[in-house]
């Protein structure tokens, strides 16, 4: 049971492309900012579907999708597809009257754990 008066912390689910963000997350392991964050490794950001994101949001989480930099996707268009899907999710949230910021997307490379920490910090902000 939640304690009355105290806002529950929103859980953060981060979908990580294993070619970039997942590696960055390994480098950043131990950073306190990563505490409590659920990482979901995916072979490519393009594997993340609209329904995967929505299920997590329905369960009360915020979602961050992390993909390789644009034009640098191992599967060519995977990250662009996800970008468009995230836009679609934002539309669904808008339709439902929910804050669009519950889903975010960022692009980063495997050697950029600083950015990873920063975008997670941003995403954790209510």
């Amino acid at each position: 049971m939640k304690k009355p008066g105290k806002r529950p912390k929103q859980r953060l689910v981060v979908f990580c492309c294993e070619n970039s963000a997942a590696k960055a997350a390994e480098s950043a392991a131990g950073d306190p900012m990563l505490k409590g964050v659920e990482f979901v490794r995916v072979p490519c950001a393009g594997r993340v579907e609209i329904r995967h994101i929505l299920k997590r949001i329905e369960a009360g989480a915020a979602v961050l999708a992390l993909a390789c930099p644009l034009d640098n996707c191992k599967y060519i268009h995977g990250n662009r597809r996800t970008l468009k899907r995230v836009d679609r999710v934002k539309q669904v949230l808008k339709d439902a009257g929910i804050e669009e910021g519950r889903v975010r997307m960022e692009f980063l490379s495997s050697v950029d754990p600083h950015k990873l920490v920063n975008v997670i910090k941003e995403a954790k902000r209510p």
Binding site: I50, R51, L54, I57, R88, V92, L93, D95, A96, G97
Partner: peptide, 18 residues
């Protein structure tokens, strides 16, 4: 199937919100 899941999520979220 995917569209069903998307619409169902949207409706549940909207219902909850309202």
């Amino acid at each position: 199937e995917k569209e069903v899941a998307m619409l169902a999520s949207a409706m549940r979220l909207a219902n909850r919100k309202a």
